[in-house]
Design a binder for these strands. Sequence first.
DNA 1: TATGCCGGGTT
DNA 2: AACCCGGCATA
Length: 524
Amino acid sequence: MASVLSRRLGKRSLLGARISAPPLLGDGVLVATQIPPLQPDLSKMSSPLASYEDNHSKEQAEESANQNQNWQALQPGQKVYVFYNGQENAGLVDHHDLVSNEVKVLLLEQGFHICRKATEVRLAEVQVSPLPTLEMDHGTPTTMGYSSLPVAMEHSPTTAPVTVASVPRSVSRNIDVPKRKSDAAVDMDEMMAAMVLTSLSCSPVVQSPPNSDTSIPASQAACDVWKESGDMSDGGSSTTSGHWSGGSGISTPSPPHSEASPKYASEAFSSPRADDGFETDSDPFVFEEPAPRKRKNSVKVMYKCLWPSCGKVLRSIVGIKRHVKTQHLGDGANSDQRKREEDFYYTEMQVKEEAPPEPVGTVASPPLDSSPAVIQQALSKPEALVLDQATPLEPPLPSSALSQSAPSSFWHIQADHAYQALPSIQIPVSPHIFTSISWAAATSTIPTLSPVRSRSLSFSEQQQQQPPPILKSHLIVASPPRAPSGTRKVRGEAKKCRKVYGIEHRDQWCTACRWKKACQRFLD
DNA sequence: TATGCCGGGTT
DNA sequence: AACCCGGCATA
């Protein structure tokens, strides 16, 4: 538990750090631009964040007041950091005006004084002796009281995440000096950052309690942040979801390449989804190693429309169903059959993700080919029809395997049908043909077929009822094994008329057999 | 070798 | 289209 949480924090913390990072560049403007967008959103939210935000703004409005009460006055001579000229400069407190809440700071480098809001001044002393002080800070704000948060922040200068919520202040305060920050501070700030971000992303998972394990030196953290940003995308999105389906809540595997943009951050967070969302993802932030957690081999499932000459690929099952329904079956919601048929017209595809730097796409991301992903099934060849319950259990299940796994009897049945009702179609000859058949069967032919279905193995032609066509169609698992480049049909395993009936009962043979043609009765 | 079936011929 | 068969491929 603790570890998980801590990991989460770790992740969040990084995010926070990341966001705050821009200040490191010495550009306060950047921060300003980044953050504002966040705030409106925050305010819209109903989550605790919103309240926090409210508090926070208020807080900002009344900063001076708060400061007097909540923040200790800066002592003359105290070493602080302030922003000047877009850079953070070390300075000494000359005077702290509690009334105006301004601090006059002597810039060490420049050699002159400047006035800054107390809120824009970052204490340096803590950094000098980081651990002890910070620990103390930690004690107070355990409860996450938002109002009290500022205190924590104030005392932990290096806390990056604060940035998220506290716009201007954070700018100065967050600039990380390569020194370590306290765990406590990290906790709080990270918490906040995480909350903000997660809330933004609408992630359901935000209520995890603060936790810290991150003993990452701030500097390192900063570095890792960027470094990890890439990974995070990876890990963060963890897996299976990624770009595949936005709607379905599948997470997005984001590109490994790092994007420092805030957008990225939001993206990253939006993707990690629901259930495992943070748990798995947080890992990347565990400082131990940036690299280890690239999920390169995660398998994603996509759904491809099998409608002839369509081949549309969607990430969500819902999407594909809708597509089939609307595009091919027609919207006429008239029949249940249609509904069920939707299932029939798409196939699941296992896609191996290899840390593709693929941009997160929209719901429908047809350009699979372009992605480094390894697609088990070629788009061009409609192949496996997978049952609804088709198991993703066997991710790398090659189509061939599928096809082989298909019960021959089934094929037989199918073929029989074809022979009986759709003589013109050679069943399992090629994937294409197969496809067309299935489609034909599924749509118009089915009704026709079922009644026609005729013989089974038995001599007397006792025809037992086969499952309804539709079910049958669902049973179709894969395309025929056939890929015969060439010419001749591989001899099937099934017994043929000759074997079954014997040569002496040649009259019982199917006509094809009699004609020395491919048996139509016992298809492979 | 038996079997399955293609290609092609005949009706 | 139905029927037939030579001949090849495969088990």
